[in-house]
Amino acid sequence: MREFGYERAADVEGALALLGTDPEARYLAGGTNLVDLMKTGVARPVRLVDIRELPLDRIEVTEAGGLRIGATVTNSDLAAHPEVRSRYPALAQAVLAGASGQLRTMATVGGNLLQRTRCAYFTDGAGPCNKRLPGSGCPAIEGEHRNHAVLGASGHCVATHPSDMAVALAAFDAVVSYATADGPGELPLAELYPPVGDTPQVETALPPGALITGVTLPPAPVAARSRYRKVRERASYAFAIGSAAAALDVQGGVVREVRLALGAVASRPWRARAAERALTGGPATEEACTAAADAELAAARPLPGNAYKVPLMRNLVVALLTELAEEAPR
């Protein structure tokens, strides 16, 4: 590991000032991803600014009836919070589906959004990777890509975003708040992760030096009946090979509102707008759910080794939506 300086910030202004414009400085929160990447040399910061003690560890109900979640709230506290479990159960489920109990107490909401892909060519730290060494190539396209993207990828990178939490946040229209030396800003989660294109090394739309301060969920009554389901290669403690967060409001057999976001299929949490459009206003039948899943997955461009993900996601979406439809109050 490269040697580095360490400073601890007491407030947001102090953190911004300590980081400054140094491109080799990084914020440290839980460290569950960053410290791991520093050990393998993938991340080589010269200075760390520890933000874990910033007063951003609260979860509050907003006046509108949504939630404001501080950036340093731990995954454990987020998933245990009664308002999260009651208003956005799929968010609590998504967080609980990620990592392990002893990682969730360390990991934070802001860090979760900014965690790096687990693509083995990226984490390997040695060979080519367009994210790590822009222009060096993407070995995954010809190589091991069993768990790589089927939606929104490019010829330059097929890595996926590994977060479970962000999938639920995407379904609920989360807005990310950040601070910079020039003042605060906001980005809808849908705009936090830019399209891959030919710049896979550009992973967020945050300005340089920006510090995520929190995430706001607008009120969403439909979210009270929501669910997160994750498919993985063992029963627990593994990254998804496919996941989905869904919320469904059915009245008189007609879909009034539906939210759907997919995980482990793209470089970002994938909001399934085509599926939502296909289902809204129609019957909540298995046939309609299947047509909605197909509408979304028509854009899939799988590679030979991950083509299984298309039927897997189709089955997952249909199962999750029909389950929610069957449980809807009559």
Partner: peptide, 13 residues
Amino acid sequence: GRRAVSCLQLAVA
């Protein structure tokens, strides 16, 4: 009081 993996926790932090 909460469980944590000490291998990813910097001592200084």
